[in-house]
Amino acid sequence: MEPLLKVENLRIELTTRAGVAPVIDNLSFELGAGESISFVGESGCGKSMTALSIMGLLPEKVGRIASGSITFNGEELTTASPKRLRDIRGNDISMIFQEPMTSLNPVYTVGEQIAEVIRAHQGLSRKAAWNQAVELLDAVRIPNAKGRVSDYPFQMSGGQRQRVMIAIALACEPKILIADEPTTALDVTVQAQIFDLLNDMKRQTGASIIMITHDMGAVAEMAERMIVMYAGRKAEEGPVEQIIEHPRHPYTRGLISCVPHIMSSISQERHALTEVPGIVPSLSDFGQNRCLFASRCNMVTQKCVDERPPEKPFANGQKAACWFAEEV
């Protein structure tokens, strides 16, 4: 069966003052209906760019899809007309952003901002859309939805605003929901509530979720499959449990070892927090024909510097782009 979303050999180029850099370099992945997939990686590894390219919202004149294809339900998105993309955005594919404090328009009520997307895609009347906005606000568990619907964003907390964003994103019952670090700006207890909410919503609407994060805990909580990105390339892909249990890429292994263990706090002895040594390569180094992680890798050999490693598939569905994936 054809997957819901299929990304093939995607290359996104960003024009900077220093020149053109491939911020996404030969990325392929698939997303099935009702599936949850998670993108993990450090800042600048191309997670958000992937999301924006699916939405057709790459920054104008700066970023562009250089090659590759994105198909949604068999329809090619990279060549679709702006009008067609507008029809899909917010309707079939919608997105929640990282910054709930600034992602809502300060001068319109939250009800108007929810109702607006319903009117745009479902052609409902003002009144019907407004009523539906109240229902959605109730569905994302904002108490006294009827009273809060005419509040302005500045009258709400960060967690409530993110709930409003979720209500907007789910208003048209999308097939795919992209969540770009939806809880990064929120405190931990609110994070857990938002994850609960997203999971419930997913169960109710059957939407597929693409979750972008750098929080391994969030991955374990939300996703079935994960993709680890490094410097615009896919480092590793596979089912979440298997990757956490046995990563096949040195970078993934490093990321997982960075997560402090809850058990360690019980023992008397305090473990130092581990980190992945070194820093992410600069944009100008992107796209070179070598392993971009080599400078930070403790298993590095001459081969890693000479040639970009291909993706090696494993029997359990894991794939890793490392010359020594079997040995990791």
Binding site: R86, D87, G90, M95, S103, N105, H121, I168
Partner: peptide
């Protein structure tokens, strides 16, 4: 919020 508005498909 302008990005949000675009993401809504307006």
């Amino acid at each position: 919020y302008v990005r949000t508005a675009k993401a809504k498909g307006l």
